[in-house]
Design a protein around this nucleic acid. Structure first.
Length: 954
RNA sequence: GUCGAAGUGGCGGAAUAGGUAUACGCGCUAGCUUGAGGUGCUAGUGGGAGAAAUCCCGUGGGGGUUCAAGUCCCCCCUUCGACACCA
């Protein structure tokens, strides 16, 4: 630890000096509003300051203001965006860069339940503490733009956007707003107008005029993008609330709290995100995101192209979804999910007991058990058959729990010869397995069996591409002899459509978004109910303030009490939820909606509010939105730029939830003409995580990581051996390191450099406190090269020699390229190399000092400002131009070339940079070491790679 | 199981377009400074052989392409992440 004592020079760059410098410059930036970014219009407008500068919108995923405050793992991304923002500001950009807080959510509410402290009070205190910690890092945020999702001035617009969604419907036939393709959200009034005029029929065909008012309400409400629905939801008694599919873990428990979750039918708010499924997938192509994240979103939405096929039965038509309609001739049985609505009607008397028993058993199973693919197939015959449309065969109908209600139609046709699960099922229950494709010879060879269409000899289903056999009927469908699956599907679909037995379709895994929560600390819905259903409150009634109470928790139940019913904290507030309003037909009593919105709501649009945070007339001024987020020039590949934030940095953990919901809201706003951008986040960058060592004792309990000693390759806590693992920093692993400790020991500039230097931004890396000193030493050497440690005065050397100037320009060139591509770690190593070169010379040459300080500035802004001032400048350097390399100084006259003999490095030669290949080759051959290495052998070939190497083949 | 990302010194990591593997930092070793420790500074530091010059081996493993492979191709192993009976 660096403590100044008697023999330390008075003006050494010590932790104390660093802190002094940092506090002074942070105050200076604050008092002079240095990071205010002007808008083109509205309260933050300063059109003159825009001055033709290109815009850049840099965004961090905003944090939840946790009571524990920041640890050093949090700011990795923030430091990265700050370095980038500062660099771009110096490169002439108008940079919008700020920070807000996603402050609704469970922890503050649970804390309130325990202590009685109102969540608003806890939240305000936590936000203040996090603001202090972030400011101490020297982040160049525009403080005017900061928002907090719990501020009524903010959530008023969250409620307003909800009403936009509520008051919209999705018209699949309307031309897209950008003119490409069809489908867009339209105002609900336009739907009502079409129904009234009769241009659009009512669902059951009765004229609109003959419908009663309640009937009309139902027709319209059924089309809204936000709707109340009796739908299967995830009920979590332990939390006392429902949760979204996305918040349920793979083993059927709640993401928060880890309580069991049950599928139940309940009336809840839903958002029709499925209407946007195609666009949410297709528009990923327009975005500059990593393929990993795009793949995760695609998989989540889960689009699959296939067909719906109707099998007729005595109990009614059974519709199945299949991606392989071409295999219909091999479909020898059907399997329905145990919950399928036709099961009761299909079940015969003899099978009734078995079916009932199976259904009960399936219902009792947790999702986790039903999803175990390795267990043997189970199932029960219903006793009925259905008719295969292509060949009229009667196929038995079974139920089995491997067929899921929530996917497709909850029923499948089973093609045992071509699907491994169906194959196993058929084998187990002795069902026929006719072959419909001739597998190639190699398939049989690999399994060491004789080629045969007798599937009883097959060890498994054939899933490859083969020639169709036994796939024809006498009604015009004949696939025999075909080898193309595409062609097979296509012909089958045509045949099915022509006979009304099926059609091509697209199926999605994505479900509509469950949008209500039975909790307190969230945005209330701007909705009241009359006896017929929900009614939107007018804009003038916004915000609907969260009512005061001292009872914050929903009623929770025994975690396993599946049949309990939700009761939100707002339900109990009769004074609040009974309300007298005049909504157009006189003063009447209504009931308020007592749900609150999920935490995702506030984060679905915060980037837009950053742009125009004080606007009281709109969520964002369209002129301001278009300036910062509007589409830019087409990309190099000729793709249209969809608009959006220029750089969005955050962790992968939001790859599906936040990013999907946010894109959905943004697209609705786009369709309604409220924003000019089609997508919220044009470029997404996922930063890695900082991991820290955590230690467990023999009882598997975590011990305080700072108290663990390492010796002889082992780890010990209070003398007892402990085991090490790497994990996310935090309270639970007892391994958090606070940035405040680092400020005290080294200062913020050292912490910033350390976090940036340990690896590329997108990589996770372990935190090592003992490594931090390396960057501290670098700053000390940098300081000493320019400042006299005894007097504190600037002290530079004479003009730089040629080699130093050339190194400087190479450094400028490299640092620019690195920072442009967020390769901050290698930018730092180049700056250290330059500084190490200067250290060998004793002093920093006078003509190197300024460019060096400017290059350091985005990384460690405080020490850079201090040195800049010492160099005689009276203004802050935050808008001084970043140095530009002189191309002439990047070209070397003489270069050193490695020479290889048979691919092995043997010698270095020095040649003129522009020497022709034959001269370089001759010089290589003439080298003494090369002659030795050749040992008299005659070179067969001399390969000269310009400016790179010479290889002699002997 | 499927999909995705990644395996380079004791550690974190460098290596534009296939062209000197290990930049930069930590740690370690030696020396200077100091009463001592720390800080600071200087030099060295992939492994093996050798007094040295130098030589051999080295980017998870095995093959291949090439004058030349950490980088490209094929197979395998390991780690991490996501999804998971998706019809």
């Amino acid at each position: 630890m660096a403590t100044a004592d008697t023999d330390t020079p008075p003006h050494r760059y010590s932790a104390a000096l660093a802190q002094d410098i940092e506090m002074r410059w942070q105050r200076h930036w604050d008092e002079n509003n240095c990071f205010d970014a002007p808008n083109p219009a509205g309260p933050l407008a300063d059109p003159a300051a825009l001055d033709g500068r290109p815009k850049l919108f840099v965004l961090d995923m905003f944090p939840y203001p946790s009571g524990a405050g920041l640890h050093v793992g949090h700011p990795l991304g923030y430091i990265g965006t700050d370095v980038f923002s500062r660099y771009k500001r110096m490169a002439g950009f108008n940079v919008c860069y700020t920070m807000g807080f996603d402050a609704f959510g469970l922890p503050a509410e649970q804390y309130a339940v325990q202590t009685g402290t109102h969540p608003a009070i806890t939240t305000a205190a936590n936000v203040a503490n996090m603001r202090r910690q972030l400011k101490r890092l020297g982040l160049s945020h525009d403080p005017r733009r900061s928002i907090d999702t719990t501020d009524p001035g903010y959530y008023r617009w969250t409620q307003w956007i909800f009403l936009q969604v509520f008051n919209s419907w999705y018209d699949t036939d309307a031309p897209a707003r950008n003119g490409e393709g069809r489908g867009r959200a339209r105002p609900i009034d336009e739907l009502i107008a079409e129904l009234e005029s009769g241009t659009r029929p009512t669902p059951d065909g009765r004229p609109w005029a003959t419908l009663t008012e309640p009937e009309r309400r139902v027709v319209v409400d059924d089309r809204r993008l936000a709707y109340v629905s009796e739908a299967p939801v995830n009920w979590c008694p332990g939390l006392g609330t429902v949760v979204a599919n996305e918040e349920v873990t793979a083993d059927g428990r709640s993401d928060r709290g880890n309580f069991p979750v049950f599928k139940r039918n309940m009336r809840q708010w839903m958002m029709r995100i499925t209407s946007y499924a195609d666009r949410l997938i297709d528009d990923l192509d327009l975005l500059d995101w990593t393929d990993a994240i795009k793949t995760m979103q695609r998989n989540w939405i889960g689009r699959s192209e296939g067909s719906r096929v109707r099998f007729t039965s005595a109990a009614g038509d059974i519709e199945v979804f299949t991606t392989r309609a071409d295999t219909l001739f091999g479909a020898t049985f059907m399997v329905l999910a145990p919950e399928h609505s036709l099961v009761a009607a299909l079940t015969t008397a003899e099978q009734a007991d078995a079916v009932a028993e199976y259904r009960t058993a399936a219902a009792a199973k947790k999702d986790i058990d039903r999803q175990d693919a390795t267990r043997t197939k189970s199932g029960v015959f219903t006793g009925s058959t259905a008719t295969n449309p292509v060949n009229g065969q009667q196929v038995p109908v079974w139920i089995a729990d491997y067929v899921l209600t929530g996917y497709g139609t909850g029923a499948i046709m089973a093609v045992p010869c071509g699907d491994q699960r169906d194959f196993e099922f058929a084998r187990q229950f002795g069902l026929p397995v006719p072959a419909i494709q001739q597998p190639p010879q190699s398939w049989f060879d690999e399994r060491s069996i004789e080629p045969s269409l007798d599937t009883s000899t097959w060890p498994e289903a054939f899933v490859g591409v083969g020639t169709y056999v036994q796939s024809a009927n006498d009604d015009g469908l004949d696939l025999d002899g075909l080898t193309s699956i595409e062609e097979g599907k296509c012909r089958t679909n045509e045949w099915l459509s022509a006979r009304g037995a099926g059609h091509a379709t697209t199926n999605f895994k994505l479900r509509d978004w469950l949008f209500s929560r039975q909790r307190y600390w969230g945005e209330p819905f701007p909705i009241v109910y009359d006896e017929h259903g929900p009614i939107a409150l007018p804009d003038t009634d916004l915000p609907v303030l969260l009512p005061e109470t001292d009872s914050f928790s929903p009623r929770t139940f025994d975690a396993d009490d599946e049949f309990s019913n939700p009761e939100s904290p707002l339900d109990r507030l009769d004074w609040w939820n009974e309300v007298e309003l005049d909504l157009g037909d006189g003063l009447r009593t209504y009931r308020r909606d007592t749900n609150v919105m999920p935490q995702w709501a506030g984060s679905c649009w915060y980037e837009l509010r950053y742009l125009d945070p004080t606007n009281e007339n709109a969520f964002v001024d369209p002129v301001v939105e278009e300036y910062w987020m509007g589409p830019q020039a087409d990309t190099a590949e000729g793709k249209h730029h969809p608009g959006g934030v220029d750089l969005y940095v955050g962790g992968v953990e939001h790859a599906v939830l936040h990013l999907l919901y946010s894109r959905f809201w943004h697209k609705v706003l786009y369709d309604l003409g409220r924003v000019s951008s089609m997508e919220p986040y044009y470029r997404l960058y996922n930063q890695g995580m900082i991991l820290a060592a955590a230690f467990k004792d023999e009882r598997e309990i975590y011990v305080e990581a700072t108290e663990v000693d390492e010796r002889d390759g082992g780890f010990y806590f209070e003398g007892q051996p402990v085991t090490r693992e790497w994990g996310k920093m935090g309270k639970s692993l007892k391994n958090a390191v606070s940035p405040d400790e680092m400020y005290d020991a080294y200062g913020a500039d050292t912490l910033r450099l350390y976090e940036m230097s340990t690896g590329p931004m997108d990589a996770s890396r372990p935190w090592e406190t003992r490594d931090v000193v390396g960057m501290y030493r670098f700053l000390q050497r940098l300081w000493r090269n320019m400042v006299d440690e005894q007097t504190g005065e600037i002290s530079l050397g004479g003009p730089a020699d040629d080699a130093t100037i050339r190194l400087l320009h190479r450094t400028i060139d490299g640092v620019r390229a690195d920072l442009d591509n967020l390769r901050v770690n290698t930018a730092i190593s180049k700056l250290i190399e330059l500084n190490n070169h200067l250290t060998k010379q004793g002093r920093c040459p006078a003509d190197v000092a300024e460019p060096l300080v400017l290059m350091i500035a985005p990384l460690c802004p405080h020490v850079a400002e201090e040195l800049w001032a010492k160099l005689g400048h009276t203004e802050s350097l935050i808008r001084d131009p970043f140095p530009v390399a002189d191309p002439a100084l990047l070209v070397e006259h003489t270069i050193e070339l490695p020479v290889q003999v048979n691919g092995k490095f043997r010698a270095k030669i020095s040649v003129a940079a522009d020497a022709p290949d034959d001269v370089v080759g001759a010089a290589a051959l003439a080298d003494e070491k090369i002659q030795t290495a050749l040992a008299g052998a005659v070179p067969k070939k001399v390969i000269v790679v310009r400016g790179r190497t010479v290889n002699i083949v002997a």
